[in-house]
């Protein structure tokens, strides 16, 4: 559905600032009907990629195809296939909910009966039906997000692009929004590409892409990503991580020792051995350990593993902690 081919973007430098490369020959394919999540630390190039996909920015080089259309050669045709939910609300606060929705319909070439029937269809997915004549500025954050989603659905997009859509929502609104998205994806079979830095959201995705410094570091199903870390992880916090790391190096079972900031991790442990390993580490280095735990890897751990690895293998000062 969407095919990104060797996309490269360099922001021009100014007098005070050197030119900055935001995307390095990035290639990524999202198959039709897939729900893909794009994650990465701040400054990883997510937003740049998103701005390019929505046509707000032209890349230095590379190609993007949406459906059968080249995004840069036939932007109108490609855009007609996409629905976009931006991170910052794209609603006119002074207009009512229904006025915003109608205006969006007209922008996508809908009018008359067709527009009305599409509005009914799109509203069926939301909880804003009771608030149609209220000004958008009176809505809660969660409802405003739903209006954005309704707006998007009017044109029956084949591809839904969402940029951090749950930012600023409380946990229950976030859940409601994601459930809605999952139902939509399932019932209407649309392709969804969403950026997010919340890993709980990524668990439900078909595939997760991890971006850092403009490079695509991983792109796989959540299950396969978790397998990269083996089955269990030992997480150790220490008052003196340098000393502890030095002592753990070379010890039996600790060959997969890595460091992320002040945290040490021994990854890819067989479940049968993890408890024994914990006991032996604790016994020998008691004085240096503040806390120690066995953990089943979650996507967040994978993210840490992958993005930390890219900076400096073995950790040290280059090791990075996910925000």
């Amino acid at each position: 559905m969407i095919s990104i081919d060797r996309l490269h973007h360099v922001y021009p430098g100014g007098r005070q600032q050197a030119a900055r490369t935001a995307l390095h020959h990035l290639s990524l394919r999202v198959a039709e009907g897939e729900l893909a999540i794009l994650s990465g630390p701040n400054g990883s190039g997510k937003s740049t990629l998103f701005r390019i996909l929505t046509g707000l920015l032209r890349p230095s080089s590379g190609k993007v195809a949406v459906g059968d259309f080249d995004l840069f050669a036939e932007p109108a045709k490609a855009r007609a296939l996409m629905g976009v939910v931006f991170q910052s609300p794209a609603l006119d606060k002074h207009l009512t909910v229904i006025e915003n929705i109608r205006l969006q319909g007209v922008l996508y070439g809908l009018s008359g009966r067709l527009l009305e029937s599409r509005i009914d269809e799109a509203l069926a997915w939301s909880d804003v039906k009771a608030r149609l004549d209220d000004k958008v500025m009176t809505l809660s954050g969660g409802l405003a997000r739903q209006v954005e989603l309704v707006k998007c659905l009017l044109a029956r997009p084949k591809l839904l692009l969402l940029d951090e859509p749950t930012t600023g929502l409380d946990p229950s609104s976030r859940r409601a929004f994601l459930d809605q998205l999952a139902r939509l994806h399932e019932k209407m079979g649309m392709t969804v590409l969403m950026t997010s830095h919340i890993f709980a959201e990524a668990e439900t995705a078909g595939r997760v892409a991890i971006l850092k410094n403009g490079h695509l570091l991983a792109y796989d199903t959540p299950a396969s990503l978790r397998q990269m870390l083996g089955s269990e992880v030992l997480v150790i916090r220490s008052s003196n991580p340098d000393a502890l790391a030095a002592r753990l190096e070379g010890e039996a079972g600790a060959h997969k020792l890595r460091r992320y900031g002040d945290e040490l991790r021994i990854e890819a442990i067989e479940p049968s051995q993890s408890l024994a390993l914990l006991e032996s580490v604790l016994e020998q280095h008691r004085g240096l350990i503040q806390s120690i735990a066995i953990k089943q890897p979650e996507l967040e751990d994978v993210f840490l593993h992958i993005t930390g690895h890219a900076v400096g293998p073995g950790g040290g000062e280059n090791g990075e902690q996910a925000a």
Binding site: G55, R79, M82, F86, S88, L107
Partner: peptide
């Protein structure tokens, strides 16, 4: 305020 981005992302001349 963000309204413009939805106009720019739409297939609008």
């Amino acid at each position: 305020q963000g309204f413009l981005q939805s106009v720019l992302a739409a297939p609008v001349a």
